[in-house]
Design a binder for these strands. Structure first.
Lengths: 338, 338
DNA sequence: ATTGGCACTCGCATGATTGGAGTGCTAGGC
DNA sequence: GCCTAGCACTCCAATCATGCGAGTGCCAAT
């Protein structure tokens, strides 16, 4: 099968290029990968692959380099994911072992992922919209100032301190607390606004401004775009990038500092592992990077996403395996112990 | 006064070097800074400064470059801080305006600082040890699992979920909550352990394991080294670094990912603005960087520290002014509204 | 379809050359 | 005693030329 060998050639090119970071020529290929054909044949295949846009040469008389399209084909054909090695498994387990709270678990996860893949790791906190409320606490800070603390079933704790329109006595605060918890506990954050909507009759009309402020605050706290937290690790791994620093790495660092960009980046990942390569990114700064991301927690309805970001020239099979494995472990860990 | 002019020459060298990033020669100096003397005289002064170790030349027949010691002298002599420009003041105010909670305020602060100085900004959350407890909440997650939420007077909210040694009924939880709050509210976190130490007589002996677990958890949560959070921004500004990426920027990025290093970095800052230059850092990775840090919040007893990190070749007067101003603003903001 | 052969193209490393910026020193002037 | 002008010297950085070699594309033969 000729088409089959073509793909094999592409695979070999990618493998070598990822390993050496240098354009790879026909001769080197025949030596390192025992494809049973001569360099000339490879050259023909290469020409054909180049026509198809899967590889390119930086300049005449240099070797070939995979294009984004080439990587894409390679990844799509990547049927079987290679399992992690035993030491890697152990690393994952021992790393997550002993996380004391959500922050800790997320922090360990992101560092683990960075260490395992030698890329930049990105982990999103369990999404608020997809969480349900477990408890709401109101704490009086000053006569007119109240702190709202919102605890979700995914272990997240959100706080906000608010200036009330009027003095808010401890009594009223207690009633509010009871009412809010009775009304909201168990609901998704997305539904909170609706549940609170009906102004409750059991409050004195004099207290209406304060009750309204309470409703407004909780609605705002559970609003969608708000407060999706994301953490990073392994930015120093960007050193892998070849070429000039300020032209290649800087835009990536800049993109990584934009919460919005990061969110969009991770947001589009499906539940199963998703790969986005080079120009498939919307953001210009990421045009020379690839993302491998997946959802984690609660099979069928992931809590949030995590993934890694690296140069397009990366070890896709290995990284995909790592991302998948870490997602599985941290998902299990969270659902059982938070 | 000759010594006076020498210093003026050093100052001029630093100024030009910071601006151009290139070794500066005697001729260029006389042209750009109207010191009333000839290049030859400057050369003599330079020779003397070099003897003193304040400047150095990368190679013979190149201009001079300030050494760490040179910067140090320069900074120490920097008596008057130049005030910020009006637009800068406005930027600070409008940036902090509208922060809704502590996370938000800290996030805005760190971005502001990065933007203002074009360096990497580092902001530490209000230190737990220096905070007092405002409220403790216990929330039942499952029959045997309890989440502790600790709210401090500095607006921080810490959580931890714990597996209890035994089933913990809602009744007992209520008693614990009341007792803990009665005992701890108002105390410094550092004192919590001591306050809780005496085993209270008003609990049934059957509940002792749970009470002990509660005490242990709170003690641990208020333990010193624990959970000092730090946030970064502006890492892409590291592009300013000249030279090879992996030798100059990478170690810095690595250092910045180490919480421990960061903490030590900021930890040593006094209340007033502190500058640490190049080799004055303990960490090797930071030997080509300078830190400008200061405490913020509560004059006389700062809540925590913040600062910026950049190449030793940086605009010290401007950066010092920015750090000081931001610290003042955020300090005021926090003490009045959290 | 595959292969060996061959001419051709370019990038890159090497090495020599040169220009110029900058220095140190010395002798003379204030 | 301090400053200045002049001068010889050093050494980096940019420029250019050169040769090498890896790699290609094409063609004719199998």
């Amino acid at each position: 099968m000729v088409a089959e060998r073509r793909f094999e050639v592409l695979r070999a090119i990618i493998e070598d290029y990822v390993a050496t970071e240098e354009p790879v020529g026909s001769k080197a290929l025949t030596q390192r990968h025992h494809l049973g054909v001569s360099p000339a044949t490879i050259r023909n295949d290469m020409a054909s692959l180049e026509d198809g846009g899967y590889i390119t040469q930086p300049h005449t008389s240099a070797g070939r380099v995979p294009t984004d399209k080439g990587y894409r084909l390679f990844v799509d054909r990547l049927a079987s994911v290679k399992p992690l090695s035993a030491p890697e498994r152990r690393a994952i387990e021992s790393f997550l072992e002993g996380a004391v709270d959500l922050d800790d678990a997320i922090g360990r996860t992101v560092r683990l992922l960075a260490q395992l893949t030698h890329q930049v790791a990105v982990v999103q906190y369990p999404s608020l919209v997809r969480s349900a409320i477990r408890h709401v606490e109101l704490v009086s800070l000053s006569p007119t100032r109240v702190m709202f603390v919102l605890i979700t079933d995914t272990g997240r704790v959100e706080q906000r301190s608010v200036e009330m329109p009027d003095v808010c006595p401890e009594m009223l605060l207690g009633e509010l607390r009871a009412w809010v918890n009775a009304t909201c506990v168990g609901s998704r954050l997305a539904d909170v606004s609706a549940k609170l909507g009906e102004f409750p009759s059991n409050f004195e009309t004099a207290d209406e401004p304060i009750v309204r402020a309470t409703i407004a605050t909780l609605t705002e706290m559970s609003a969608e775009q708000n407060e999706e937290r994301i953490v990073l690790a392994g930015t120093s791994n960007l050193a892998k990038f070849g070429g000039d620093f300020s032209t290649s790495v800087r835009p990536v660092l800049e993109a990584l500092e934009e919460q919005v960009v990061l969110l969009r980046l991770l947001g589009e990942a499906a539940e199963s592992v998703t790969v986005r390569i080079g120009h498939e990114h919307q953001d210009f700064g990421l045009h020379s990077t690839s993302l491998i991301a997946t959802g984690y927690g609660r099979t069928g309805d992931p809590l949030a996403n995590l993934g890694i970001l690296g140069p397009t020239r990366m070890d896709y099979p290995g990284s995909i395996a790592a991302v998948r494995a870490v997602a599985a472990y941290v998902g299990a860990f969270l659902t059982e112990s938070v």
